[in-house]
C-alpha cells in the first residue's frame, strides 16, 4: 500500500512541475535551450578549454543576446562580475556556481518581458532595486550551486576509484568512458540546475519583488551601488594597498577625468 502511495506521489511530481510551467512564459523550448547554453558554459568554466566566456559578464551578455536583450545581461552581469572578480575556479577553493544562476536569472528576466535600463550610469533609479534583487538571487543560487559542484566532484572521486580496475585488466577504453562520463555530468549539472532555477526565479523570485516592503526596496536600490566598491576593495586587498596604490590612483584619476570631461 505504501509502495502504491509512494509511486502515485512520484508519478504526480513531473505532472505538477509541468503544470507549473505555462505554455508561453517561458516556453519549454526556451527553457531547454537556456539549459543547454548553461551546460556548455559550465563545461567551459572548469572542465573544457576554460576560455573565460563563462565569466559573469560574458555569460550575462551571451544569455541576454540569446534571449534577445543583451542590455539586460549587461545590467545584471556587470555588478556580478565586479563582485566575483576575486573568485578563482581552482582546485579546492570556493568557486560558487555563477554560470547556472546567471543564465537562469538573465533568461528569466528577459523572458518575463522586463526592460532593464543599464543600472550603473543610468539617469533613473527606477530599475535599480530590481537589479539588486536579481544580484541577490545570483549570490544565493550561486552558493547553492557550489554544493552541486562539490557533489559532482565526489562522484568524480568514486568513478576515479572505479578506474582502478583498468590497472588490473588493462582495458584502456574504461578510462576514456569515465572521463567522458565526467564531462557529460558537468553538462548535465549545468542543464538541470539552470532549468530548476529558471522555474523558481520566474514563478517565485520575480513575482515576490512586487511584495517587498519599502525598507527592503531601499536597501536593494543601494546594493548595485555598494557592490562595485566591495568588489574593487576586495581586489585592492588582494594586490596589497602599499604596493598597488600608485597604479590604482593613476588609473582612477585618468579614467575619472576622461569619463567626466572627454567622453
Amino acid at each position: 500500500m505504501d509502495f502504491v502511495a509512494a509511486w502515485g506521489t512520484l508519478s504526480a511530481a513531473p505532472l505538477a512541475i509541468m503544470a507549473w510551467v505555462p505554455a508561453a512564459d517561458p516556453t519549454w523550448t526556451s527553457i531547454l535551450l537556456l539549459g543547454m547554453l548553461a551546460g556548455l558554459l559550465c563545461l567551459d568554466d572548469t572542465a573544457l578549454a576554460q576560455t573565460w566566456f563563462s565569466q559573469p559578464l560574458p555569460v550575462g551578455v551571451l544569455t541576454g543576446a540569446f534571449c534577445g536583450d543583451p542590455l539586460a545581461g549587461l545590467a545584471i552581469g556587470l555588478p556580478v562580475q565586479l563582485i566575483l572578480a576575486g573568485n578563482l575556479p581552482v582546485g579546492q577553493s570556493f568557486t560558487g556556481d555563477h554560470v547556472t544562476s546567471l543564465v537562469a536569472i538573465v533568461g528569466a528576466v528577459v523572458l518575463s518581458g522586463r526592460d532593464l535600463g543599464l543600472a550603473l550610469g543610468a539617469r533613473t533609479l527606477g530599475e535599480i532595486p530590481f537589479v539588486g534583487w536579481m544580484v541577490l538571487a545570483v549570490g544565493l543560487f550561486s552558493s547553492a550551486g557550489h554544493f552541486m559542484i562539490q557533489l559532482e566532484r565526489r562522484a568524480h572521486s568514486v568513478w576515479m576509484l572505479e578506474g582502478h580496475r583498468t590497472l588490473r585488466d588493462g582495458r584502456l577504453g574504461r578510462i576514456e568512458q569515465i572521463h567522458a562520463r565526467c564531462l557529460f555530468t558537468t553538462f548535465l549539472r549545468g542543464f538541470v540546475t539552470t532549468v530548476i532555477m529558471l522555474l523558481l526565479i520566474r514563478r517565485l523570485w520575480i513575482p515576490a519583488f512586487d511584495h517587498l516592503p519599502n525598507l527592503v526596496l531601499g536597501a536593494l536600490g543601494m546594493l548595485p551601488l555598494l557592490l562595485p566598491g566591495l568588489g574593487i576593495g576586495n581586489l585592492i586587498d588582494r594586490y596589497g594597498v602599499r604596493s598597488s596604490w600608485p597604479w590604482l590612483v593613476s588609473g582612477t584619476a585618468i579614467s575619472y577625468l576622461v569619463t567626466r570631461f572627454v567622453l
Binding site: G251, A253, I254, S255
Partner: peptide, 14 residues
C-alpha cells in the same frame, strides 16, 4: 592594478 583604478574612476565619474 591600473585597470582596477580605471574601473573605479569610471564608476565614480558615472
Amino acid at each position: 592594478m591600473v585597470l582596477t583604478g580605471m574601473t573605479a574612476g569610471t564608476y565614480l565619474a558615472m
